[in-house]
Design a protein around this nucleic acid. Structure first.
Lengths: 202, 202, 202, 202
DNA sequence: ATCTAAGCGAGACGGTACGTCACGTCTTGGG
DNA sequence: CCCAAGACGTGACGTACCGTCTCGCTTAGAT
């Protein structure tokens, strides 16, 4: 997924040469997941990944540019991250459900990894962008759709600053995850959304 | 500031022996500031600090537990960070002014350092707590006071969830700083505040 | 030349399958020669040979057991190495001419490669033996014939230790090549031969 | 001995800072000696030296520029290499004794290491020069003195080309060591010397 | 006027991880 | 059945920092 080599636009045919060993990639990602849990992001080192999996270091470097990239990929593969919400006829309720799911995810050990990842993603790499879009903005985009539908339904007034509104709703979640100054439970999520919507309603 | 050494309970008199060289501490912090700007947080290493300042590594370790601590201290010393706002008779305007100041700070190169610091502060050290309280929560506490005064003044209704409201207002700033998906200008700040207050007003 | 594969005892007909591409062998040897000049023996690596020639690594391994073998082969192909001396009626003069030729060869860049090759040939491989016989002992054998003829002609006394005498004459050349403590010019060659023959003459 | 740092001409006082741990250096050299015997020069790698001795790799690099340098140093420390011959009243006999000693040394496993070292010393480093002078030329210089005394004593005629004569005597030893085409026993040494001296005698 | 404890710079120490290179082998699809 | 391409596990390379330690030298209060 974070392969550093842009495949040539070979319209047909395999790319020649021995294909990469996908099982090796999978093993590396699995090991990265274990290491993430055991010791956090800093525990995910190339040397350890290679030692645990029996995969050679150059092989890992062929698929990822550095150890953080592996960790990120491992995190992204963690299933059901930021899962899409089934959209019903009540967009604001869908929004609430989505926020609750995110909060629940952040409350698990994975949440800690995500926070560390946000931290590591500060360096301006392509990787960082991928992470931000996949993790921090994907839900926000889904929220944009839901909010638009709420406007159509007349549940939210049309004249809002969509970007500001979205940050208003999603930022508090990440803020609490990063700062840890308060709980990330359903009550908090509902309260945030209630206060935000109070200013958005028709 | 982050000195790890509990001062001996010597009730009076100097502690015997050669006193610490305060000028060395200052030089180290200055060098840390330069390194932060030059190459970000990862550029602040003990070896480089020692080499640039001519201060011995053990001397630095006497005052800080690790390189990140020095960087944090350097950042904290950056004057006028999160400056207190002079409180006027219009608390909501004071709040707006404060948010604008924060946004302005985040838009400078220092903002980038702050973001990196937030990242580094993810590890659960005493240091991280200091940083979070000093940087991320100090303004929020000031906001709490302002909001309380606005309630007294009848500009905001009394029945609000203060914690949620505060996150609603402050989180978007940090969110944009960390994710960088949008500008951190006055327009954004005002819009966020307007939408938030719309749900809070009496 | 160093092909490790015994040709199948197929008495007639082509050996089945795609025949080896002889042009590939030539390209590899040419690339090896270039690399030898550019960076010496250590610059001749399989990866580089394959990359420069567009020949697959396994293909190279089919013809040579390792990179040094290719370099040696390239060196051996350098034409006119240790050329046979046309034998005249004056065997001692022929000997002198041969030594001068060797010294002249050693004084060229090729000489440096030969020295490196001698070095590399220290490991006890079949390759090393080939190199030693082809490079270091071939001339010595020619010298043996010349010396024998000189004995027949009465120019050298019969009672000599032929092996010792040959080393006496040829060793100094290689010694200077390897150690580089003195020039390898005609004057040196003549002087060595004069002193050696002084003890061998009838 | 091959320390890469020229000590400042500090006439008095220690060089500041923690002094190097000489016991670590000794351990490394000992390990190098073992590795040399076990697997020859190529077995002496930094990783193995570090692993066997418990000395950190950077520490080894502080004292030697690369693994070959360690091996060379280990070899040079091998006591009694190219030992000085006690000079008697019979310089030609002293010479003979010296040559026999060298041949005896070359016949031991150490001889093989020396040959490998000569090989490795082909690259033009400072190390190579040290090795050549210490190993290959030291005895030759001793021979120069002995030959000079033999001339004084009238045992060898005055009009000889000293450089050529020395190579005539010493080169065959190294030649046989490197090429291995014949034994390096006392008989060979004596025969070489006899034939060489036959052309040098008064 | 000593004595003595602590801080000072310098820099070596054992470690860990880095990212790269070359090795020699293996595995593809295509010729 | 050979070919190129190229991925594979191995293992060494030389470097950067880490946080600790050991030096000989101030420095300055306590004796």
């Amino acid at each position: 997924m974070h392969d550093d080599e842009t495949p040539p636009p070979r319209t047909r045919g395999r790319p020649r040469g021995r294909p990469r060993d996908e099982s090796a990639r999978a093993e590396v990602l699995a090991a990265a997941r274990v290491l993430l849990q055991e010791g956090g992001l800093t525990a995910v080192t190339m040397d350890r990944l290679a030692a645990r999996t029996g995969v050679g270091k150059p092989t890992i470097y062929r698929s990822w540019p550095n150890a953080h990239a592996v960790a990120l990929d491992a995190l992204l593969q963690s299933a059901a991250l930021m899962p899409a919400v089934r959209e019903s006829a009540a967009p604001l309720m869908d929004l609430r459900k989505q926020l609750r799911k995110i909060a629940a995810l952040f409350a698990t050990p994975t949440g800690r990894s995500v926070a560390l990842m946000i931290a590591a993603a500060q360096s301006e790499t392509e990787l960082a962008k991928v992470f931000r879009h996949r993790f921090m903005l994907a839900s926000r985009e889904e929220g944009r759709r839901l909010l638009a539908r709420a406007i159509e339904a007349g549940e939210v007034r049309a004249k809002i600053d969509m970007e500001a509104a979205l940050d208003l709703i999603y930022a508090p979640l990440f803020f609490r995850l990063l700062v840890g100054h308060g709980s990330l439970d359903r009550k908090f999520v509902d309260s945030v959304l209630d206060h935000a919507l109070a200013g958005l309603k028709a």
